[in-house]
Amino acid sequence: MSRPLLFTVFSIAAMGSLFAALALGTFPSPALQVLGSVVNPVPDVVHDVVWKLRAPRAFAAFACGGLLAAAGALLQVLLRNALADPYILGVSSGASLGALLALTMGAGVLAMNAAAFGGAVAAIVIVFGLGFRSGDRNAYRLLLTGVVLATGLSALVSLTLVMAPPGQVKGMLFWLMGDLAYAESPIAAWIVLGMVLAYGMARAIELDLLGLGRIKAGSLGVGITWLQIGVFGVAALATVAAVMLGGAIGFVGLMVPHAIRLLGVAEHRVLLPLAVLAGGTFLTLADTAARTVWAPQQMPVGVLTALIGVPAMLLLLGRRR
């Protein structure tokens, strides 16, 4: 498919997913009325349901998906590893541990968020400090440090789960599996998403060059150390913003960039915006399904992303052969 066509298709899909998220739910809201409330907002019940209940969550889901996909694409090229995903830097494990410890101590939502944020930042600082010491900026070292730290933190998370009072375990599991039900206002996440995308577009060719290896990219005039630090920082920022919205939602950050690459797009100038659109669309649809399919029961969206994403990805992989 040509690039303009891909952009058109993905943009329409993105709008469609957001509209579906606004129109679907337990409260009956005919599509026409929702459309009316989007085009010409008149205060009534449908308007309130759409804009006060569903819209914040829909836009949170979209931003979260976009951030995860962008972070995944950036880390895959930074670490030169196709299996890299946003959580490889230990961000989600750090955030989970912080949040769970806060929960066991009976903290409120605000304190829990603060603890999660603290845990995520601590994990990033540790990985960056150990894996990226001056003089030896080997991607494998960074990768291994992240994996090792994430494993250790996961063990602590498991320990916290086992030790926690049984009543709290279900809430904790939802946090661990990723859930957008408690997403706060998505405005901050959208600002971060804009910044991440702007950085990625400005550095698009340098990102392509990173795929050639440090030395070759350096010989072509890339200031490689600052680029690596910048990509690491931006990917970490995107991951933290996503984790603060929805916990550790798996699959999106790993697979969405690959899905775009399987469509024949490898240049980051095109790959990054498409990945953001696709990740946002995918997570918005998954979250809408998570809160409507079993209503009034809610599923953790992290489970659904895998349930929907795995067959779709296997199909794409198979088609390629």
Binding site: E206, D208, L209, G211, L212, G213, V222, A266
Partner: peptide
Amino acid sequence: VLLQQEETEFWGSVLEFVLLGRY
């Protein structure tokens, strides 16, 4: 510079690869 070992991890086309030399 043409390196002896280039650990190329490149997902794009041959033309896109050569274009990177224009950076």
